[in-house]
Write a protein that binds this DNA or RNA. Sequence first.
DNA 1: TTGAAAGCGCTAACAC
DNA 2: GTGTTAGCGCTTTCAA
Lengths: 348, 348
Amino acid sequence: MRRGREVTLRDVAELAGVSSRTVSNVVNGYANVTERTRLRVQRAVDQLGYRPNVLARNLAQGRSGQIAVVVPYLDTPYFSELLQSIIRAARVQGYNVLIDQTDGDRDHERMLVNHGSSRLLFDGVIFSPLGLSQAALADRDPTLPLVILGERVSDGTFDHVGIDDVAASRQATEHLLDLGRSRVAAIGDQPYETGEAAQLRTRGFREAHERRSLAVHEELIIRTPRFNRPDGAGAMAHLLDLDHPPDAVFCYSDLVALGAIHTLVSRGLRVPEDVAVIGYDDIEDGAYSNPTVTTISPDKEMIATTAVERLLLRIDSRTPPPGLELRAPHKLVVRESTAGPAPGRRRA
Amino acid sequence: MRRGREVTLRDVAELAGVSSRTVSNVVNGYANVTERTRLRVQRAVDQLGYRPNVLARNLAQGRSGQIAVVVPYLDTPYFSELLQSIIRAARVQGYNVLIDQTDGDRDHERMLVNHGSSRLLFDGVIFSPLGLSQAALADRDPTLPLVILGERVSDGTFDHVGIDDVAASRQATEHLLDLGRSRVAAIGDQPYETGEAAQLRTRGFREAHERRSLAVHEELIIRTPRFNRPDGAGAMAHLLDLDHPPDAVFCYSDLVALGAIHTLVSRGLRVPEDVAVIGYDDIEDGAYSNPTVTTISPDKEMIATTAVERLLLRIDSRTPPPGLELRAPHKLVVRESTAGPAPGRRRA
DNA sequence: TTGAAAGCGCTAACAC
DNA sequence: GTGTTAGCGCTTTCAA
């Protein structure tokens, strides 16, 4: 759909009897314009219905006013909840958000941090990598302002925002042990290069045992390729088929927990009486499921605003600021999947 | 972060000993370039590491290569699942997707269809309006290619993609009546200007009763401002406090259904034995919840690809194509919340 | 405080 | 098939 000729800055300038420079000043609210000319220009703008052409402005300024947010999967509640906050924070700063979803594909991810084929399409990236190794991250386009979410460790050239996964996982596991459970399983380990997130959680899981001088039941640590419901359901089925099934499970995401609970319930087991379950992420689903899910709750709002803030700072800096490790707070939220139903509630 | 001087088309042209026009042709894969020059140019491109400046291209072409997708809430699974498909479909066509979330704010929505302050930032919009009336939609920027999702009716100037809500809702209600339930409630009505989506569902609800010559229990039609879990939970609580509570509930979204089930379970009622529940949207949550949720399943993939396809057609047309009503298929997916647990499953 | 004018890097008539 | 060149509409340096 071809648009007709649009009103330009020059048209406004002509009508107002000033130079385009002055109009630009007025439109952008720059200093040093007489109230009188400002008014005259403003009237011309209104009269002509002038609206600046973003594309031209972008070219002249060499920036797009857009940031990209890259997540592995959009339909994962954790990411969509986070995204929601990021979009709000960016808009406040006058930035638009371009969404990209990688499906965890490492080539796609690598292309993105190399600014792909599309230089200048976005001024910076907030990235939640899945298939990208630390190495691939290191040899990226160094001019691209970058903030990483999740569980990487900054190499000093980008910022990293996340919670303390080891501590959180330790806390989750200790919560299960405190219930008096002796066979605690873990679902979600990923003992390979790109599974750093998972590995931190496994480390916390082990530390909890160590602190209580308990042995980890190695056969109860289950790997899953992703952190979603089907994976959780499948892993739980596997655990239940063991000779000595667990009496508690630490799931590396709430989705995994919901999948695991699904399997438990359909096998006729009671949660938490037979098996206690704890999740991670605090997505809304877990607060309304049956039973509701105990979880580690990261401060998503804080993660989002911090990420945006740091990224814009990076974009605006002449010299790149040092890459920081930024820790958002988290807390343990106890619900029915470990504490049992609220008093007075009958099991349906 | 200021970038150094970048390699331009002209640099490539110089190195290859051709004009910038030829380089442009090669880069964009246009016809009429000798294999020999093409190779020479390509070598220069590789050698210099040239990547086109999207901003400049955008300005020259007068289009951004971006489409905007506007949804009320990003963290609603239905929208994020849809978004996922839309992003994939758009990328295939070489388009980037800009996400906007309105929170249902009608002023924000109106600004967007008026192309807001950001003319040319996107070439077209796929819009799922919430607070926008048909009237506001009618007096929008007529040059903006637009596809509407959901339950509006096209006035002929834009395309509309959705399922047949009345038929789907009738089908859902009939399913409940077929179970022999006599007091069927509906949660989600919105009998005001911007609640067209809800009203179509209420209409289907009524039609189902009419077809069976049954009277609708008016006091069992509950309004909710949104279609989320808390609203469903609250509405269900209200229904249970009535003198004659319902024995079945048609919820206008799966989230509402999940919220309603949450309330039922915490009051010690059994689903579906005491109250059968059906939802709408077929989000993944409903397939793993306890009980799993019977639902109306719209073909989201089809909705997404159709929307993108029609939008791009609109963008590329000199003269706007007629506004079409496009109906995606839907089906009834029966799960435990109406059919009861699978055989052999013990209730936990 | 305002004006003139040189880009920003690419596309696409138009000419050869 | 390839070169020349005039824009696209804005920002911004430099002068006045």
